[in-house]
Design a binder for these strands. Structure first.
Lengths: 114, 114
DNA sequence: TACTTTATAGTAAGTTCTTGCGGCAAAGTA
DNA sequence: TACTTTGCCGCAAGAACTTACTATAAAGTA
């Protein structure tokens, strides 16, 4: 094998990397989790539910998730605006995965700060 | 309920957020995945295996994972240096989770770029 | 002698991510 | 009339994350 040659090429097409890129991060999993538990939520409800997020961030993340077809956005043409967010069928399939992550995290990451 | 009061407080202590913070990101899941599949690996092997990572990044991520007790580091006092990385028992318990993420990602995130 | 090897640590520079602030629309309420 | 409401957007500024580059040890090899 030549010098500097890469044996694998995991980073770019690794499904896990893609996942982290699209569903991971600081806010997206929380948004999905909330919608999973609460069904339909309005923008302001999500804003209040998520500690520390700014409206700017929230709308950005929602847009990303909508583009990935994880969430569904329904906008009512009223004033003041009313927009409802909920999970798509695809988004709902994240349920087990998130539960798994949550469980692992509770077991392994919580409480080792002492 | 008072104005601006938060109904929940998910972001800070949400296990999923903690997980993403500690095991998520661009490189960590890939490192864990590689160690899961290859057992023990040396620094250079990981470097070659991970497309696009810099050595600096790699050593930082490895250090983080070691602090979380996900990976184990064995350093041999020889010159040139030799350091071996492998998963701890705790790290190994990530196996199913990562497989699940990988599966979901393959099914749902791959190939919708057309 | 000069170069190569390995696993990092600094440092500076560059990028991307997040925040904060202000603003808009048009109806309802005080 | 003046203020409130909702779901954003745009811009500037700050924070965080990444990269690139240099350096090191001490033995082995050309």
């Amino acid at each position: 094998m030549k010098k500097d040659e890469k044996k694998y090429d995991n980073a770019d097409e690794c499904p896990i990397t893609i996942f982290m890129d699209k569903i991971g991060g600081k806010w997206k999993p929380v948004i999905v989790w909330l919608l999973l538990n609460n069904g339909t939520m309005r923008f302001n409800e999500l804003d209040k539910a998520i500690n520390g997020i700014t409206q700017k961030m929230l709308s950005q993340q929602l847009k990303d998730l909508e583009l990935e077809n994880i969430i569904k956005r329904i906008s009512y043409p009223v004033i003041p605006p009313k927009v409802e967010y909920s999970l798509t069928d695809k988004g709902k399939t994240l349920s087990e995965l998130l539960k798994g992550i949550m469980q692992w995290s509770k077991t392994n990451l919580q409480g080792n700060y002492q």
